[in-house]
Design a protein around this nucleic acid. Structure first.
Length: 834
RNA sequence: GCGCGAGUGGCGAAAUGGUAGACGCGCUGGCUUCAGGUGCCAGUGCCUGCAAGGGCGUGGGGGUUCGAGUCCCCCCUCGCGCACCA
């Protein structure tokens, strides 16, 4: 090699060389029925086809690929598929803006992204590609909908819904951001009363919550806590209050039935039907005051409603309820701190022990009655009436009849018993979670497979009539206008009633695209199956997903929906598992100068430019080396050119190998072999613990050690150098497949390095022949010496006592204790000098 | 307010309770080239000292331990999530 001219590392040339060869070899197919190895299903969240891939994709797919390629080297049959989440508003809006057909626009983008992903060398099984906007895919959304409809899990109701005035469509609760704006359009969401389709996710609230415990440790704790929070289970009681002048009692939910004796008034949500009904029985002045208040409340937007220190408002409704425990007469108020859609839209107010009720009581001069004696910290006054602070802590019941003297826990149980015996209440559980609103008034989605008869009856489309395909866009106005554009496709929407051929209409709405993504991981298992959504035999082989990789932005939305649909499919008998994703990795975001990249901020880094300048491998390696995968990467802080430098260094190392293929490494440099085998042993632990950056550091150390042997040791002919170079090539494949493949060829092997099985580290090379023993005096390191790992405690102590550092430090001091932890530490304690 | 998570060099970051700062960036010096934004080698936490060495050091304060970045308690700061959910 030294005789003739050495080639220099040219990433562009290497990329060009290997891409077509890989296309030919298809090393990542996973459909061999005779493959009996253990299996791993590694899944990256699939992309929206809006524009080309960006830096965020580059990070996500680099990290997912580390995992997929790693398990292949561990001799697993790995399923690593990719597809496109190609229905949805972003695609449709972009299509409208550019005056294009959403079909053309979407599939052009998919082609662009596919090309980029191939070049990016993501190790996908390209035979399994799916697009959710293909009729062969969304047919099975419709099947799923009908299965759920049959079970009563898909239903239509008239209710207040979130309305996006820009996109002109309804949204699920999960798609409304905390500030009350739409996740998609950014518009302030308004409430509208509409008839819409829902999936009954609330039936699964308990299971969705309880099963999170199974994911503890393999899902990020942040995602688990967000989901728990979102489902928001609270335990308590439903309590019935008789209403003067009304036949039916009003039911309220409370988590503190023990404080019933402290209830001094009741509050109803002003926008609940109940408020309107109750006030109708009051005098004209009260009715007028309420009407004015309701108008006021409806004008206020979410931001105003949610501001925490906003003063309480409300009006008296002129009606009274009766406390079921003590018969006390309680005035009923309407106030917007009570929400219409939580619990029963009405509460009992216990101002002494609930801060919100206290604020309200103090403002409107309502009585405050203490029923829990909470001891104050140091004798200070803790009377809510004077401090303005409700006492919510533990205490003993007082002023509460039969509950007096009980603790909180016992009083809750007894209160529920009493209510139950009198038939005025019972134990109850409430959830924050609401049913999933799935209908959308837009074109680019799965048509809902329902026909509405002239008599208003819902008729499910027969299975053999699926898919209900979208009509062509020709002649349709896709502009958002509050009604589905499909309603105007006369030839499509007007169909004969399946019962009697009389005129009927298709449901014009389309499904939320989160329906598409809630089961796509199953479709990958048999993507071309035209007879079923997925093949149960394949599901048995592969599912659930062993490792899911994606952004934390889907912590609630997609991940909650997918868990829900998985449980539904389990209950329907289609699958034998209840959680779709066994393990989850949330990668961080790619930032620039401390903030998310955006065109408007002017800090956009284009992936295509980076790939052009540094090459695919350098970008992938940079993503992995930047830090822990879940941390954000600030592109301003990392150095793709340094990654490139390392790749070139590794590549040159392979070039310098002059020994023959198969040369016996046992005859080579033992020091280098120890490093090589150390990496072979350690890397699996590190990769499986997602410490991808540390593995890169180990590879750098190995390359540095090899360089040293080549330049100043036995040289490139040492078989240990070959062994090191082959090890680097194999492991580097998970980060930088082009460079690794080229090294592998230089080392005299046939492609593909991605198929190389991880060699077992030689245990005799993992034992060091000498270790450093540290000597501490009073906790401070004073000396160290090299010693055999088998040295006894006595030997170590004797040696330690004679080291220069110890002798110097111990001069004039008395040793009181010596602790030896062979072979690493000798710890000496001395008598403190006075 | 409640709930998660995190604070380590100039920077990105390592570290089963056992040598804090691996690896890399940046910086300094040297060698090679000398057309080099190349390659190679060495140094690089802070203070002190010619040096040997010494002192300090993982947000702050306590504690457990022979030994704490790591475990426990209190506090501060930042990030994220939820937030009038009865």
């Amino acid at each position: 090699m030294t005789e003739h001219e050495e080639a220099t590392f040219d990433f562009a040339k290497i990329q060009e060389k290997w891409l077509p060869i890989w296309d030919e070899l298809e090393p990542f197919r996973s459909d061999d029925p005779n493959d009996t190895r253990d299996r791993k299903y590694v899944l990256d969240m699939f992309p929206y086809p809006s524009g080309d891939l960006h830096m965020g994709h580059a990070e996500a797919y680099a990290l997912g690929d580390v995992i997929a390629r790693y398990w292949r080297h561990r001799n697993f049959n790995v399923l690593h598929p990719i597809g496109w989440d190609s229905f949805g508003l972003p695609a449709e809006n972009a299509a409208i803006k550019r005056g294009l057909n959403p079909v053309t626009w979407t599939y052009d983008n998919i082609e662009q992204q596919k090309k980029s992903m191939r070049r990016y060398a993501a190790s996908f099984d390209w035979t399994r590609v799916l697009h959710t906007s293909d009729p062969e895919y969304y047919k099975w959304n419709q099947w799923l909908f009908l299965e759920m409809y049959k079970k009563g899990l898909a239903y239509r109701k008239d209710s207040w819904v979130n309305w996006d005035p820009v996109d002109q469509t309804v949204l699920a609760n999960e798609q409304v951001l905390p500030d009350g704006t739409s996740e998609r359009s950014g518009a302030m969401v308004v409430k509208k009363k509409l008839t819409q389709w829902y999936f009954k996710i609330t039936d699964y609230a308990d299971r969705l919550l309880d099963d999170l415990d199974k994911l503890e440790g393999s899902w990020p704790s942040k995602v688990l806590s967000m989901q728990r929070n979102w489902i928001g289970r609270s335990q308590g009681a439903d309590v019935q209050f008789a209403i003067e002048g009304r036949d039916e009692p009003v039911t309220v939910f409370t988590t503190r039935p023990d404080t019933l004796f402290g209830a001094t008034f009741m509050v109803v949500a002003p926008d609940a039907d109940l408020a309107t009904e109750l006030v109708a029985g009051a005098d004209a002045a009260t009715q007028a005051a309420f009407a004015e208040y309701l108008t006021e409340v409806q004008k206020s937007n979410e931001i105003e409603r949610q501001s925490t220190d906003r003063p309480k408002t409300g009006v008296f409704l002129g009606r009274f309820g009766i406390n079921p425990l003590n018969g006390e007469k309680l005035p009923i108020w309407a106030a917007d701190y009570v929400l219409a859609d939580y619990g029963h839209g009405a509460i009992m107010a216990v101002p002494a022990h609930d801060q919100r009720d206290l604020d309200f009581a103090l403002k409107f001069d309502l009585p405050v009655k203490i029923v829990v004696d909470v001891p104050s910290a140091d004798g200070e006054d803790n009377d809510p009436r004077t401090t303005g602070i409700a006492t919510g802590g533990e205490g003993v019941m007082v002023n509460s009849g039969d509950l007096d003297g009980l603790t909180k826990k016992d009083a809750i149980a007894k209160a529920i018993d009493i209510l139950g015996a009198r038939g005025t209440g019972s134990k109850a559980t409430n959830f924050r979670l609401r049913d999933w609103l799935i209908s959308r008034q837009r074109y680019w989605g799965t048509p809902i497979p329902i026909i509405h008869g002239a008599d208003g009856v819902e008729i499910p489309v027969a299975f053999d009539q699926l898919p209900v395909e979208l009509p062509p866009t020709e002649g349709l106005n896709l502009q958002p206008k509050g009604q589905s554009p499909l309603g105007a496709a006369e030839n499509w929407v007007n169909v004969p009633d399946p019962r009697d051929e009389s005129p009927a209409r298709r449901d014009p709405d389309t499904m939320d695209t989160f329906v598409d993504s809630s089961w796509y991981f199953l479709r990958f298992l048999s993507p071309r199956d035209s007879t079923q959504a997925f093949d149960p035999a394949e599901a048995k082989k592969w599912a659930p997903v062993d490792q899911y990789v994606g952004g934390v932005t889907h912590a609630i939305l997609h991940l909650l929906y997918a868990r829900f649909i998985t449980k539904v499919l389990f209950d329907l008998g289609h699958i034998d598992f209840e959680e779709p994703f066994t393990a989850l990795l949330n990668q961080g975001m790619v930032l620039m100068d401390g903030s998310a990249m955006s065109k408007s901020k002017g800090n956009l880094v284009r992936l295509s430019d980076q790939l052009e300048e540094h090459g695919v491998d350098a970008i992938r390696l940079t993503m992995a080396f930047a830090g822990p995968p879940e941390d954000d990467i600030d592109w301003a802080d990392v150095s793709p050119s340094a990654s490139n430098k390392f790749l070139a260094r590794a590549w040159r190392m392979a070039q310098d190998v002059t020994s023959a293929v198969g040369a016996d490494p046992a005859t080579g440099d033992t020091g280098l072999r120890r490093v090589t085998h150390g990496v072979l042993a350690e890397a699996p632990v590190l990769i499986e613990g997602f410490k991808f950056n540390v593995v890169v550091a180990r590879l750098m150390e190995l390359v540095n050690a090899t360089r040293k042997v080549i330049d100043t040791g036995a040289g490139g002919s040492d078989p240990a150098v070959r062994e090191a170079a082959e090890t680097v090539a194999m492991i580097l494949d998970v980060y930088a497949p082009y460079t690794a493949e080229d090294m592998w060829e230089m080392l005299g092997h046939a492609p593909s390095v991605s198929r190389v099985v991880w060699p077992t580290a030689d245990p005799t090379l993992l034992v060091q022949d000498s270790v450093t023993c540290v000597v501490q005096v009073d906790g401070k390191v004073r000396d160290k010496f090299d010693v055999s790992p088998n040295a006894t405690e006595e030997e170590l102590e004797a040696t330690a006592m004679q080291t220069a550092g110890v002798i110097r430090t111990l001069a004039g001091r008395e040793v009181v204790n010596v602790i030896v932890r062979a072979p690493k530490i000798v710890s000496i304690t001395t008598k403190p000098s006075d």
